[in-house]
Design a protein around this nucleic acid. Structure first.
Length: 476
RNA sequence: CGGGGCGUAGCGCAGUCCGGUUAGCGCACCUGGUUUGGGACCAGGGGGUCGCAGGUUCGAAUCCUGCCGCCCCGACCA
């Protein structure tokens, strides 16, 4: 097996796969398109999940769990829904050794089953709002899969809320896309554009789709999370009504929002480099890996004594650590291995360090090496983690800005697109214009950002007056 | 579903074009010893239905036919 990962510049896609496999984030499952999430990768997902879950709860949501089997009749109730999902569904036809009377769909998403429950639970405006989130696995028989980015089965959360008014649903939709922004930027150090999808790109059946869009290391865009204002469309489809204060039957207003294990893929491609993964401290399984180095047994004893003192402090200070004292591997091997796994900090302690009363602390992000007195080491690390976290965010932001091109006409647009990256333009085109642009250039409108500070101008494509800027890019 | 690539030890590969002793190599693994500050070394060792099925042949990893699987690139999607 080759030692490192393929260089990004040689083959970005190979680099990505190498990182996932060699950093032991995931492995291929036995069924095409499936993925085994290994402990190291799963821990990253758990960190992301934990942060998201806390924010959901802070914003008034509760978790619940709905079954993964959906009766075929449910799927057929809502024509548009079936059309969208039926072809990519896995269907269970047998159970207990017998053919089932009714086939069971494995959920590709849970709208049908959740809204069938909501129909039972909602009678009056007093039953609203319902603010439920579910952490679950879903299955979509995708044609083309990629580890974390698009797998046949994946883990996600899906929020499904029900409201009495359109205003309330809109507030909820915006609130949740803001939660996603925070998750991406504050925890994953991944800068995102927050905005609204064009009609061409929005979720089928949604009134609006809000999203967060991030730039990956190859300058392509990744849709990292979506929040849909479903208006009354879903309530009408599933016939969910409530009696309002003034005694009128009204359809419920709905929202749904989700992020998935795709975020782990985004994390890899946002920060990774030619040595492998680079993890922001907040989502890293370990903040620091301690590598003791010794020649003689007496050195080992003295070193491990120091290590024990340090790890005790780490525990008290909430620093996540791993002591790699495996005698089978050389320090050099471990250095490379942990760099590939993206641990933010490495601490070396050898005989020379014990003698001099310091530790060696090496940063993964900027490759700096510092000698820090023992007594200051844990505080030093504690203080350094937020600096690394912020540094990664700033670096990613700078990368995005450097690769965002502002253009005023279609020729410049095409030229800029060849360089890769995001393209910021005034936009007043139609869905058809968008389609034409996509056919010709493979670029799509990633979003119309909420943040609009550029006044008015002329649409780069149609030449019409425009009061909105849009972000175009090629995307995953 | 279209295009490309690949299936040989746990992993990565060579051998296949042009059939011929016992199917090799690197890493990993096991034993013993020396080692450990940027992917250690020496010695010994274990591990193979060559993707599956059929055919051609005295003889098939190698040639022929069929099938299966996986990866990558496109159209669809989180």
């Amino acid at each position: 097996m080759s030692k490192g990962v393929t260089k990004q510049s040689v083959d970005y896609s190979k680099w990505y796969t190498d990182v996932v496999l060699k950093a032991e984030l995931a492995d291929y499952g036995p069924v095409k398109g499936t993925m085994i999430i290994r402990p190291y990768g799963y821990t990253i997902w758990e960190k992301i999940k934990e942060a998201a879950d806390n924010m959901f709860k802070e914003t008034g949501h509760v978790n619940a769990y709905f079954p993964m089997f959906i009766p075929e009749s449910f799927m057929k109730k809502e024509a548009e829904h079936v059309e969208g999902f039926a072809p990519e569904c896995a269907v269970v036809t047998h159970g207990g050794g017998k053919k089932l009377e009714e086939s069971l769909y494995i959920r590709p998403t849970s709208e049908t089953i959740i809204w069938s429950a909501y129909k039972k639970w909602i009678n009056s405006y007093r039953d609203l709002p319902i603010l439920i989130n579910q952490w679950a696995n879903v299955v979509r028989w995708e044609m083309r899969t990629r580890l974390f980015l698009r797998t046949t089965e994946f883990l996600w959360q899906e929020g499904h809320t029900a409201h009495a008014t359109a205003e309330e649903a809109e507030i909820e939709t915006k609130k949740m896309v803001e939660v996603y922004r925070q998750l991406a930027e504050d925890y994953m150090a991944m800068p995102v554009w927050v905005g609204v999808k064009t009609d061409a790109e929005k979720f089928a059946g949604a009134v609006h789709t809000y999203c967060i869009e991030a730039m990956m290391g190859d300058k392509k865009a990744l849709q990292a999370g979506t929040s849909h204002n479903l208006g009354q469309n879903f309530a009408k489809a599933f016939d969910v009504t409530f009696l309002s204060k003034d005694n009128k039957q009204e359809y419920v207003y709905a929202t749904s929002w989700g992020v998935s294990t795709r975020l782990v893929g985004g994390l890899i491609m946002c920060h990774g480099d030619d040595k492998g993964l680079v993890l922001p401290p907040k989502v890293a399984p370990y903040h620091v890996v301690i590598i003791p180095i010794w020649r003689k047994e007496e050195d080992r004893v003295a070193i491990m004594e120091k290590v024990d003192l340090l790890t005790k402090e780490f525990k008290e200070k909430g620093i996540r650590y791993f002591v790699d004292d495996n005698p089978q591997q050389s320090p050099g091997w471990k250095f490379n291995q942990w760099e590939m796994k993206g641990v933010p900090l490495r601490m070396e302690i050898g005989p020379k360090d014990v003698e001099k009363g310091h530790t060696v602390i090496v940063r993964r992000d900027i490759k700096s090496k510092e000698f820090i007195p023992f007594k200051e080491s844990s505080d030093y690390i504690k203080n350094l983690l937020p600096i690394i976290q912020d540094g990664l965010f700033q670096k990613a932001l700078k990368f995005r800005e450097e690769n965002t091109h502002v253009v005023e006409n279609y020729d410049d647009f095409k030229t800029a697109l060849n360089k890769g990256g995001f393209i910021k333009v005034f936009w007043a085109g139609s869905g058809k214009d968008e389609e034409k642009i996509q056919k010709e250039t493979k670029a799509t409108v990633r979003c119309i950002p909420f943040e609009q500070n550029d006044g008015t101008g002329t649409c780069f494509y149609t030449g019409k007056p425009a009061d909105k800027i849009a972000i175009f890019a090629k995307s995953y």
